[in-house]
């Protein structure tokens, strides 16, 4: 029972961190049809900025998060303007190559600037240590990650289903040309959702630094995981991404607890099985 409970909490925390990072990827992939392999790199940049702000400059944790989100968006804007805009609508192979190239560059530069060691983001006192729930205790930062995931999911749901920006975003996803001819400024919608996606990636990178440690190969190591989440959930679907994250988080965590010697074998087996049965993802729509 104890094992079952800790697997459950770890899986939930891991799944929520995955969700925060990859939901942005899912939105951009559904909207702009860009297979963005560099998404993990943005999460990593966020982690590095937060680590620098909190550890080296001694700024408070909350401030470090805000700084990481804003800093990553600022870094991403010229990339979107000069590189991503050229590959909207290009074949997948082109997009994959371009974004892998960006990822390699970011890894190389991070390695050069920050060195190959792990970077920690010091947690504030409130998030250290366990929280007593009455019948069990949970590490506070895991609880915090789960809470952030719930807030992000609800916030995105509200943004997309209940605001005028969400209406425009959904219209652009469904049919960009038609939305544009009805007066939606699709370029601005694109740019705003790209910034949102990058900001969420950075946020997730900081929140999840305890689970996915920040180091130069972060971008390559977890890139595959984020891509898998989007593919399993279905590009552009928020509930799909949430289900995929919780499911894959549960499979991965259970595998690590019960049969650690098999590594990620079962994770990838599950991925093949799911994508085999649902080639468009669990909640993906037919094109």
């Amino acid at each position: 029972m104890q094992v079952f409970f800790s697997i459950g909490v770890d899986a939930l925390a891991y799944g929520m961190v995955l969700f925060i990072i990859s939901i942005g990827l899912s939105v951009t992939m559904g909207l702009m049809r860009v297979v963005n392999l560099a998404h993990g790199a943005f999460a990593m940049i966020g982690g590095y900025i937060a680590s620098y702000a909190a550890r080296d400059l001694g700024l408070p944790y909350g401030f470090a998060i805000i700084l990481a989100v804003i800093g990553t968006i600022i870094i991403a804007i010229p990339l979107e303007r000069f590189l991503y805009r050229r590959i909207y609508g290009a074949p997948e192979l082109t997009q994959v190559l371009m974004t892998i190239g960006i990822t390699f560059c970011v890894i190389g530069l991070a390695n050069y600037v920050f060195g190959p060691t792990l970077k920690t983001i010091p947690l504030p006192a409130e998030l250290q240590g366990p929280v007593n729930l009455g019948f069990r205790t949970i590490a506070a930062h895991k609880l915090f990650a789960i809470g952030c995931g719930v807030v992000v999911a609800l916030g995105l749901w509200f943004l997309i289903e209940r605001t005028s920006f969400g209406v425009k975003l959904r219209a652009s996803v469904d049919n960009t040309a038609m939305a544009a001819s009805l007066g939606v400024r699709t370029r601005i919608v694109y740019a705003a959702s790209f910034a949102l996606a990058v900001g969420l990636a950075a946020f997730g990178g900081v929140i999840g630094a305890e689970l996915l440690p920040v180091e130069p190969y972060y971008a390559l190591r977890y890139m595959v995981t984020f891509l898998v989440v989007v593919s399993v959930g279905g590009a552009g679907s928020i509930p799909g991404a949430l289900i995929a994250c919780l499911l894959l988080g549960a499979i991965d965590t259970t595998g690590r607890y019960l049969v650690p010697e098999y590594g990620e074998f079962f994770f990838y087996l599950a991925v093949i099985a799911i994508v085999w049965v649902f080639p468009r993802g669990l909640l993906g729509r037919a094109k």
Binding site: S231, G263, F265, Y268, I272, V275
Partner: peptide, 25 residues
């Protein structure tokens, strides 16, 4: 070849990791 586009890429990535883990095991 079961998938197209993104699904195809993800399947290919899953295949290489499966082979890797199997050889490791």
């Amino acid at each position: 070849l079961r998938g197209h586009g993104l699904a195809q890429l993800v399947l290919s990535i899953a295949v290489i990791h499966l082979f890797h883990e199997a050889a490791n095991k």
